[in-house]
Computed example of a mutant assay.
Amino acid sequence: MTLGSRARKSARGNRWGLAVLGLPFLACGAAALATGLGVFGAGLARATLLSDAAAGQLQRPWVPYVAAAVAVLVALLALRWLIVQGRTDAVARLRMEPDPASGTTELSAGAARGVFEDEVGDYPGVRRARARMTESSVRPHLRLDLTLNDDADAAAVWRRVRSEALENLRTALELERLPAVIRMSMTAPPKNPRREPA
């Protein structure tokens, strides 16, 4: 399973988990509100929340320990959920095609990304280039965020990235294909440009 599919599975699990937890809480809250407003009768609205028997059960010596255990369990589940949210689909190392004679070669994704960003960053009109390798260490995908000058030719930059930089990176990584997503944004011109003296 790739990191990207794991992230999608995690997002789907989040939605289901929130729905499973949220719907009972919503139902209990709506029922409590309706009871308090007297929808189910004035007698039920004035009744105490716990009967004397239930209040007596809560005074047993083992109740605080059970409550503490439940609180620790809920805290551990919440901590696990937070840790899962911090996972990213970025790939740290790239695995080259295995060679039966020499074995498997691994390359730092950061090194490949740095060379790629430097190459694209030197193109005319490019102010900043940020790349990220995602999905899989064997079949990576590339996400490139470009910030262009306000007078840059975006179409020319896109063509050059596609025909030169991506091709160079694909060849260096010995990949048959390298799917890429390129996002470009333009920098706003200065609000008060300085005028050159005449």
Rank of each mutant, 00 (worst) to 15 (best):
A165G: 10
T48Y: 11
V39Y: 14
W81G: 10
A131K: 00
K191T: 13
E176S: 10
R195Q: 15
D151Q: 11
E119W: 02
T187I: 13
V66G: 01
L169Y: 03
P100K: 08
P193Q: 05
L146R: 01
V72N: 02
T35H: 15
R195Y: 13
P140S: 10
T2C: 03
E97T: 09
V66C: 03
D145L: 02
A42Y: 02
G22D: 10
A152L: 11
E117S: 01
S108D: 08
D118V: 00
S5H: 08
L50N: 13
W62F: 08
R15E: 09
R113I: 03
P193Y: 06
A112G: 14
R160P: 04
T88S: 14
E135H: 05
W158I: 01
R93G: 10
L3M: 09
S10E: 09
N168H: 07
D52N: 04
P197T: 14
G121K: 03
K9F: 06
R113P: 03
G125I: 00
D150C: 05
G125R: 00
T105Q: 13
A152D: 08
R12W: 02
A71V: 07
S185Y: 10
P197Q: 15
L58C: 06
A101R: 15
L21K: 04
R170H: 11
A78G: 06
A47K: 14
F25I: 15
K191H: 11
L23Q: 08
R93I: 15
T2E: 01
C28Y: 12
G41F: 09
M133P: 05
Q85H: 12
F25C: 15
E174H: 09
T105K: 12
L21C: 07
R8D: 14
A68F: 03
V115H: 01
T134N: 03
A172L: 06
E176N: 12
A109S: 15
G38I: 07
P64Y: 03
L73T: 07
A154T: 09
T35N: 15
A27C: 15
